[in-house]
Design a protein around this nucleic acid. Structure first.
Lengths: 339, 339
DNA sequence: TTGCTTTGCTCAATCGAGTGAGCAACGACT
DNA sequence: AGTCGTTGCTCACTCGATTGAGCAAAGCAA
């Protein structure tokens, strides 16, 4: 169906090798007459030749493709991350194939297997997280020296290249912003306990309280997953409390959304004007007329740096690939909303 | 590096053909002794054999992969669509590779070329739209009888399988909802003029006005693209108007977001309580305390139906592929918010 | 004329899996 | 003993591109 190299070779009465060399820009190196090269290029364009990446990948063991597995593509944070990664990769002539694990380690593993059998040259993974069996497939990648860069989240005991934000510091700053407003009884609406982002953000939260010598009420520290539903459950749980909190910290945007949705139908006092802090942006937070602090993660930078790290590993010699893990932490930007 | 068929064949002292036949479930058909088959399966599992999709795809000219090109993956509408398509395809043993064109026909074309050279069996495309050169690559696909299903948007003069919602009807219903609230001077905040979604929604809007014998003010019909920035520009433009509108219809969620953001700093009268209607959901619309009607598109159904149509075409014989285009229109669900 | 270099290509193997054709061994039947 | 059918495999080509090795022709020098 499609035009092949041999079609071009045949109709120009040259060998496939010559065509291949011209089309891969090696004409000079192999002293192909510039006249021949020109004819080949012209013919290739005329017939709309498109090389089969399958054949090329099979032969060269490289597809110039990266795999990206995020935990939830419907979260704009990851969508933007994916977009940024794609742009960064494209500049180096690499394509990116994106998959979403839905926070399920089994799906994540299936996706990774799938991508590898498709011959991706390297992987970017925002791991669903966990430990033991849930991350065994990631450990295996590392054993096999398969180029892997973690993004957004890390795995305990798996030293590996990776890029994430300063979660601890950011959470601490968010919490301190609330403390400075006079809050003393702050709740933490967390995500998946297994996720490093959850744990680091919780640590930052606790550190801020400790800094002000405030003992925290364990009933105010909640976890679930990073979903809207989880945010709703958290809010519902807080509404049951005898003594309500006087401020909230949400571990990500979806939790914030769920929480706000649930609180909408709560008694105005004290819930309507409760100061809140959260990671990640959400459309029109500014319209909510609520005291709100947001830690904006630099998605574009995260994506671009992760791709850069991965490409660096790809270029490195196999021996060099065993070198120590290089992890980067990017700064967040704090944004204040509301009255 | 990875385990190959011949590795298994060698260590079991059988031929690669036998291994291939066993692993592809053709053991019965080729009368492979069940003992041999068992040994092969066991060895394959033990060594963690993962077939090379590159080699397989090259040989069989099928990768059991579908390509999906959306116009903006950072829009949750498309993200959900992609997710739904992926789930639907997976059930039939197909994988989906997603790409985002960013509403740029040239990027869209590049993406499609790329996916085809990677050997996808078929394509789902939400076209950036336009006409002439901007859609020539889609027309070419059709000429070549390459399996293609449009999704969300159609192309004028390109009869082609596709799935979208009842845009006209939905826009008309949205507009009528505003008219029933007493609005008489309604503005339409559109998207890309080239997109069929824009045009159909505009038609529905105009039809509703006509139904009430209201002559529309051309100054109230705006277009740009389907972005937040565009929504902001639309709102700014309306703010300049001598006679402000008394209600708004937005062509999609991003325009709605941009518009609301811009209106936040507008004089309360009459902007604060302006009734609005829009396509697509956005988080916590319910919290906005604004009269608001939303046409929710059934993303899951859209994705699932599109995949079903595409797989149907794939199964069809090449001759049957020339059969007339089959387009489906799904119903939207209207949701009311606000006071 | 012989020998060497340079130019400009071609040959053929290779990547990993799929597949039509074929074939040896064995039992059964005439 | 010869023929046939069945069982259980193997052989070798193929997909489309890449690549090391090799080779004919032309140019040039001795």
């Amino acid at each position: 169906m499609a035009v092949r190299m041999s079609d071009i070779a045949d109709s120009l009465r040259v060998s496939r090798s010559t065509v291949s060399r011209v089309l891969s820009g090696q004409a000079q190196k192999f002293r192909i007459a510039s006249d021949t090269a020109e004819r080949i290029l012209k013919e290739a364009t005329r017939r709309g030749y498109r090389p089969s990446q399958l054949a090329r990948g099979l032969r060269t063991a490289s597809t110039r493709t990266l795999g990206l597995v995020v935990s939830d593509i419907s979260n704009p944070f990851f969508a933007n991350l994916a977009w940024a990664a794609e742009q960064a990769a494209e500049q180096q002539g690499f394509a990116v194939v994106v998959g979403s694990s839905g926070e399920d380690p089994a799906r994540e593993q299936a996706y990774i297997e799938n991508l590898r059998s498709r011959g991706v040259d390297g992987l970017l993974v925002a791991p669903a997280g966990g430990s033991g069996a849930a991350v065994a497939h990631l450990a295996k990648l590392k054993d096999e020296r398969f180029p892997l860069v973690l993004i957004d989240r890390f795995i305990d005991g798996l030293p590996c290249d990776g890029v994430a934000v300063e979660n601890r510091k950011a959470a601490r700053m968010l919490t301190e912003a609330l403390l400075n407003r006079g809050a003393r009884r702050i709740a933490f609406l967390g995500g998946r306990e297994e996720a490093s982002t959850h744990r680091e953000r919780l640590e930052g939260f606790l550190a801020a309280l400790k800094g002000k010598r405030i003992k925290h009420d364990p009933a105010l520290v909640l976890h679930g997953d990073f979903s809207v539903a989880s945010g709703q459950r958290h809010a519902a749980q807080l509404l049951e409390l005898g003594t309500p909190p006087d401020a909230l910290v949400c571990a990500n945007n979806k939790i914030l959304i769920g929480c706000l949705e649930r609180l909408a139908s709560a008694p105005a006092e004290p819930w309507a004007a409760l100061p809140m802090a959260s990671f990640d942006e959400v459309p029109f937070l500014s319209l909510l007329r609520r005291p709100l602090v947001i830690a904006r993660q630099p998605e574009r930078q995260l994506g671009a740096r992760a791709v850069a790290l991965l490409l660096e590993r790809l270029k490195a010699s196999p021996e060099a690939r065993a070198k120590s893990a290089h992890t980067e932490r990017l700064e967040v930007e704090l944004k204040e909303f509301g009255i």
